[in-house]
């Protein structure tokens, strides 16, 4: 019973994360901008470090706002460059943003005590430290963002799925901006909880596993939610009983599932067609 009480917040938060990230993951996968969250997380971390340098205290509101500010500025630039020049693929821009963000963070890390520790913390995270307060705040924030997305669902879908679009380029840009900003807010909130890799896997792996089998948007969403939540809860229980780290356990579980399913689909079709 004690175990369950102790694992309560991590389990609830991992299901919450699976739902919101499973949704965004399908958008990200369809847009082919796989590494966007890692870049956003890096920029957010850079913002936090700059906040620390300017003199905001740890875990203060000012610090969190600095982080959001940087994220939104960079994401705005990213959304705007989308139509300006398609010569260089967007994924390359994402890589460059990530690279510059991490490079700057490493330079600043030299100036902050415990700076390099901070970089490692962004990478690993620890979901076991989640409190009920974190759960409530996240629930509130994610519901708000979910509501925005339910309201504009047609718009966002048609951009992601590249359907023929009547509205002007400026309108599309506006919706794109809204999409990326809400996404950025979720990532900035989620990465300190689970670490970059857990967030990345919850975004991409369930979406990949389902999209192998169906093109239907609704089925993709529901499938991602089921796979993501089941995988996270199993991972947490497994890591608890085997005494290994929880985040990595979930990542390996969901990641291997996606790769194995993909291989299975490819090889099965190959033998059928020959």
């Amino acid at each position: 019973m004690n175990t369950l009480l102790f694992l309560g917040p991590p389990i609830v938060i991992s299901v919450l994360l699976s739902i919101i990230l499973g949704y965004f993951g399908n958008h990200i996968l369809s847009r082919g901008i796989i590494f966007i969250d890692i870049a956003v997380a890096q920029v957010a971390a850079l913002g936090t470090m700059i906040g620390l340098l300017v003199g905001f205290g740890e875990e203060s509101l000012g610090l969190e706002m600095t982080s959001y500010f940087f994220t939104i500025v960079v994401i705005g630039i990213f959304a705007l460059t989308k139509f300006a020049d398609q010569k260089v693929p967007q994924e390359a821009y994402i890589g460059i943003i990530y690279c510059l963000g991490l490079g700057l963070a490493l330079l600043l890390a030299e100036r902050i005590s415990g700076g390099s520790n901070f970089i490692s913390k962004t990478i690993t995270g620890n979901i076991l430290w989640t409190t009920w307060k974190d759960v409530w705040i996240s629930l509130l924030l994610f519901s708000l963002i979910g509501a925005i997305h339910v309201f504009f669902q047609k718009r966002f879908q048609s951009i992601s799925l590249n359907k023929s679009e009547n509205s002007s380029i400026n309108r599309t840009r506006l919706y794109d901006m809204l999409f990326y900003m809400t996404f950025g807010i979720v990532i900035v909130k989620a990465v300190p909880i689970g670490g970059i890799f857990l967030i990345f896997i919850l975004l991409i792996a369930p979406a990949v596993s389902v999209t192998l089998f169906t093109n239907n948007w609704r089925k993709r969403l529901i499938g991602s939610w089921i796979i993501g939540s089941t995988g996270s809860v199993t991972g947490i229980l497994l890591s608890y009983s085997l005494n290994i780290s929880n985040g990595p356990a979930i990542v390996c579980l969901l990641g291997s599932l996606a790769v194995i399913l993909t291989l299975w689909v490819i090889l099965r079709k190959r033998t059928v067609s020959v």
Partner: peptide, 11 residues
């Protein structure tokens, strides 16, 4: 498959 290779690389 319709999955971009980059997704599997990331995983």
């Amino acid at each position: 498959i319709r999955i971009p290779l980059e997704a599997l690389i990331g995983i």
